[in-house]
């Protein structure tokens, strides 16, 4: 998704008369990470895998937390500091499940979906972020993504 994230559209996508709780998480590009300044982030994805994986995680979240609906959007390309890079909307009959699902989804997205962040420094230098440095990503390698779909998902 090269265009800006539209949180209101995500919220509208999960709205339902069965849902009394609608949680929206918006992740924005931060100016400083671990003491290092950034003027922008750039995101790259292996899109044929990232899209279906986001959709799969939405489906799992709906089942796992008993959501009414769930939607996720991740922006790709350059994201200036202050702008949204990711948004999650979760609706449920009650708030506890919706909050928990949003937190769970964000955690899974950061760990498992083939999307990478590059931090653009004030001096123009660019640093791709590949967490770890110790063990390989066994968790991701052990699972298999499902086929089909687009980089955005809504699941009931």
């Amino acid at each position: 998704m090269r265009r800006p994230v539209d949180p209101q559209r995500l919220l509208a996508a999960v709205a339902d008369h069965e849902a009394g709780a609608n949680v929206l998480f918006v992740g924005t590009a931060r100016a400083v990470t671990n003491g290092r300044p950034a003027v922008a982030l750039e995101f790259e994805a292996h899109e044929p895998m990232a899209g279906p994986e986001l959709e799969r995680l939405c489906r799992v979240a709906v089942e796992k937390f008993g959501l009414v609906a769930c939607a996720v959007e991740h922006r790709l390309g350059r994201v200036p500091v202050g702008e949204a890079s990711v948004a999650i909307a979760a609706s449920a009959p009650h708030r506890r499940e919706a909050f928990a699902a949003a937190e769970w989804l964000m955690e899974r997205i950061k760990r498992e979906v083939p999307i990478w962040k590059c931090e653009e420094r004030p001096d123009g230098r660019r640093d791709w972020i590949h967490p770890g440095g110790g063990a390989p990503q066994q968790e991701a390698a052990a699972r298999g993504p499902r086929a089909g779909g687009r980089p955005r998902g809504r699941r009931r």
Binding site: V113, P114, K117, P131, A140
Partner: peptide
């Protein structure tokens, strides 16, 4: 074939 290095989305 694609090589998937440690991810950092979010």
């Amino acid at each position: 074939v694609a090589i998937i290095p440690p991810v950092s989305g979010g």
